[in-house]
């Protein structure tokens, strides 16, 4: 039984999420994602290109793709009642516009959400400024997005 975008609520073990977050954070640091200069170097295709971050994505996908295939053959996750998965198809305007805006902010700062939160833990001053903006962006979308009826899907 695979349910689309139906979150499993109270049963979700919190400690697993904590371990997963810690592992994710260590991975980001080791990968070089907490160095915005490396991110900008990766996005600078026309300049002195640093392909390192392609290896981050490649390594992560090489592990996650077979893992999720194997996991989804089961009826449900080991510690929860349902899989919570966003839809795969439906290319929508919010998807295109939102992702484009995200890319501009990513290129502008070299931060995406994960590395920014890790760097917040390290009290990097730039991450504090970026993080403040990011939370304001979340709140802004919650106002504007809801008012304009923009779909926001569960992740």
């Amino acid at each position: 039984m695979i349910a689309d975008a139906k979150p499993s609520l109270s049963k979700t073990p919190v400690f697993v999420a904590g371990v997963s977050g810690l592992l994710f954070g260590i991975g980001l640091v080791l990968a070089g994602m907490t160095q915005p200069s490396k991110v900008v170097g990766f996005l600078d295709f026309g300049g002195d290109w640093d392909p390192s971050l392609a290896f981050v994505m490649g390594g992560a996908i090489l592990v996650f793709a077979p893992a999720q295939w194997w996991i989804r053959r089961r009826e449900k996750p080991a510690l929860a009642s349902t899989f919570s998965m966003p839809p795969k198809a439906h290319i929508t305007k919010p998807l295109l516009i939102g992702s484009s805006l995200f890319g501009i902010g990513w290129g502008l700062s070299g931060f995406c959400p994960g590395p920014a939160i890790v760097s917040l833990g390290a009290l990097l001053p730039e991450a504090l400024l970026f993080g403040g903006g990011m939370v304001a962006g979340f709140v802004l979308f919650q106002w504007v997005g809801t008012r304009a009826g923009i779909e926001t899907k569960k992740l």
Binding site: V16, L23, A31, S52, V56, L62, V63, K76
Partner: peptide, 24 residues
């Protein structure tokens, strides 16, 4: 190191999905 970091990220996502059923 970037590939190894990526592998850890993939493992973390697999853990969250396989046990909690959530996408990282």
């Amino acid at each position: 190191t970037s590939s190894l970091g990526g592998v850890l990220i993939g493992l973390s996502a697999a853990l969250l999905f396989g046990l909690n059923g959530r996408i990282a």
